[in-house]
Design a protein around this nucleic acid. Sequence first.
DNA 1: GCCAACGTTGGC
DNA 2: GCCAACGTTGGC
Length: 163
Amino acid sequence: MNFWLFKSEPDVFSFADLKSRPHRREPWSGVRNYQARNFMRDSMLPGDLGLFYHSSCPQPGVAGILRIASEPKPDPSQFIPSDEYFDPKASPDRPIWQLVDVAWAADLPQFVSLENLRAAPALADMQILRRGNRLSITPVTPDEFHHICSLGGLSPKAIAALS
DNA sequence: GCCAACGTTGGC
DNA sequence: GCCAACGTTGGC
């Protein structure tokens, strides 16, 4: 199993929004960065777990836990001219951008703020904490994932039940 | 709103 | 294939 961090602006789509969707599930559309796409295409598997991170907001940080709920597939928004994520270089025959469905997996009893993340020595190497990091999807190590779940107030038992 | 950092674009 | 210019991201 692999572990991931998904960034989203909560004004646009928050962890609470995911939880309120039918089946608590949503296609993660709009990724337009090759590295992030390649993670989805090459390394992500249904059942993998992810941290739902709120960015560009008053309180950045990890708001909850999600699970990868589909194989990667073409992101339909790339084909729709009126869509803000339209890509004229893409066609249904030759899609460029992929998405995966994600589903709610668990609430965190406590929000894990960016400040909390920075204060944890065990998380010092996280990609999200590096200067200039702009990737909307990044891998995290199993240790980092478990550490953040623990900071979020999940018991070891609850964390184990996720995997 | 500022600004540093980064990815992408396009002229050559 | 280089690299300057540009747009975007995201914390503050």
